[in-house]
Design a protein around this nucleic acid. Sequence first.
DNA 1: AATGAATGAGCTTTCATTCAT
DNA 2: TATGAATGAAAGCTCATTCAT
Lengths: 194, 194, 194, 194
Amino acid sequence: MQANKKEQIRETAIRVFAARGFHYSTTDRIAEEAGVSVGTIYNYFRNKEAILEYIFQVELEKRQQFFASLEGDQRPVRQLLTDFLRMHFQAILDHPDVGQILIRERHFPQLETLDFVVQFIQGVPQTIAALLEKAVAGKQIRPCQTAVVAAALFGAVEGVVREAMLRSDHAERDAILRRAPEELVTLFFQGLEP
Amino acid sequence: MQANKKEQIRETAIRVFAARGFHYSTTDRIAEEAGVSVGTIYNYFRNKEAILEYIFQVELEKRQQFFASLEGDQRPVRQLLTDFLRMHFQAILDHPDVGQILIRERHFPQLETLDFVVQFIQGVPQTIAALLEKAVAGKQIRPCQTAVVAAALFGAVEGVVREAMLRSDHAERDAILRRAPEELVTLFFQGLEP
Amino acid sequence: MQANKKEQIRETAIRVFAARGFHYSTTDRIAEEAGVSVGTIYNYFRNKEAILEYIFQVELEKRQQFFASLEGDQRPVRQLLTDFLRMHFQAILDHPDVGQILIRERHFPQLETLDFVVQFIQGVPQTIAALLEKAVAGKQIRPCQTAVVAAALFGAVEGVVREAMLRSDHAERDAILRRAPEELVTLFFQGLEP
Amino acid sequence: MQANKKEQIRETAIRVFAARGFHYSTTDRIAEEAGVSVGTIYNYFRNKEAILEYIFQVELEKRQQFFASLEGDQRPVRQLLTDFLRMHFQAILDHPDVGQILIRERHFPQLETLDFVVQFIQGVPQTIAALLEKAVAGKQIRPCQTAVVAAALFGAVEGVVREAMLRSDHAERDAILRRAPEELVTLFFQGLEP
DNA sequence: AATGAATGAGCTTTCATTCAT
DNA sequence: TATGAATGAAAGCTCATTCAT
């Protein structure tokens, strides 16, 4: 029941933050929509910011678990990267609200100093950079500043998500998100051909 | 003197917003740092948001002027795009605070509905998309969803800027930003080769 | 077991109130330190104030029992008063936390209306006044406003306790408290010599 | 006008704190009774506690100024002390609410650490102790632990004020306060006769 | 045009108390 | 009897905005 309630608050907060933005969302509103009292929120979260932190934390852990499951995977780097992007875009397809928040509130000043947010923002590109490193070593791609290219890829992913989110036509939006992994991997791997 | 004061407030606000984020910046603070009284701010701006709007407006106009100056330029698309990215990265090198705000406050809910912010956020990628369109027509690159690719490029630019900003070594940071226009154009044009 | 638990809560509350002050002590904290749940507190006490009331009640009863034991004691008033002050100072030496609370929370608005607190705050001086009355009748001291003098003596006791508590050197502190009963009685009886 | 408003808030707060106690007084209530808005309070005071601090500060400064004016006064110590007590009791006669607060909120945990409160609670007795020291040197009183006696006198003063404040009959109350200085000085000086 | 004291709606947060288990 | 999650009234405080000077 406990974990349930925290989860219930998290999910409601995602909806509310996505609709209004963190700073225009009130704890009263979250409580009301979650069907609990304000006090209950504070039984599970230190303060309002902690809710946002938790949302990020959950998402980060999903990505990390995925990376962990890739350990020892012998398929070509291109394949692994495609898989990761598929997972990422699929997560956003499943919960567009989370995507909205991840993009919108990422630059939230207090968040930027939090360990797991730093890990998310730096950690994910670092893992991508490590994959690119392997691809360079395997001569699948030409030598390059892998950290910079990884950052570019990470940014490109964000840009495509943003572009997709702007579409009011849901079918169109989903189409972009669904095709994105292959297109981006193709674009980057062809762009990096030796 | 008038225009001067509005400019003075805009510049101070850039500094304050960049340091703290829009929502954690107070009008009192801006007034104090600008050496004017709060009341004066309201003689030049409808409200606090209007200051942010104005900051975006000024930046947007700079980009638009650059695009206007490109009108009729007959050089290859690749050349034009490189020039634009050079200008953009140079602007960020010159005023990192503005870059910070453009990235951070872009997703500000009330801003997203404002015409010239929409123009900035959509307009810049749209211009890039238009250039890509021309390149496709000229068979310099393969057919693609130009809007999505433009968004990816725009995002990649942002990602590289962010990566550069993380470096504590200034020389290294500047080196990345200086090389970035060519590298990104090369990456994308090779990636889009027919 | 019952009486035990109530006692356990009372003792913990004394520690907590003394350390933080009544208003900055939470029921959660008391429960935690007492090793019971908040709910349990409310099985023994009507509300938070009732805990404070009970603390006062227990202390008052101790004083009253002492007075009762003095009934019929034929020794000179000066002797009786000295004994009472000895008992009082000893009680504070034994439980400085209780002394702290008795002094600090005495002026608590809701407490001031409670019968047994009124009895404590007025009752102790009244008993002193009664003893002084007897001394006046016996011509051991000159006629005076006994209520006012009793209040002065009661206040003086408090002042000396406070002064003693300020000393960081424990030996010094204890020395003051040990000598205090005689010194105060001497001071006041000499001051009231006929 | 500025100083006026701070003064206006201070005076209202004295009335409100005296009637209800600090912890049961709300900033809204003070604002309402002072005829200003809550925001205005916070233009003059850091927070609610700062109002209480200021009340203490003003009273302490009055006492200190009085002591300063005594510098170089050649009259006998007994006379000086009587004068000081007269001033003190007169101040309480003039503003019984202040007296109430001085006694009730003195033990307020956050106040106890403030420099000027420490100065008040320790400083006033120290000045008294210094006067007693002079009286001992001049053989007007017998040798004694002047610090302890000063604490006792300070406490006795408080006790008498408290006793007076308990009287519902104002005439009676004022009578006690008016007679107190002479009575206490007589009591103590006779009690300390060599 | 410039000022800055005054405003008060509105927010986050706390915590004594309850009650279903 | 004991529990402790849930409650929600109530409080302190902030800060964008106004307007008399």
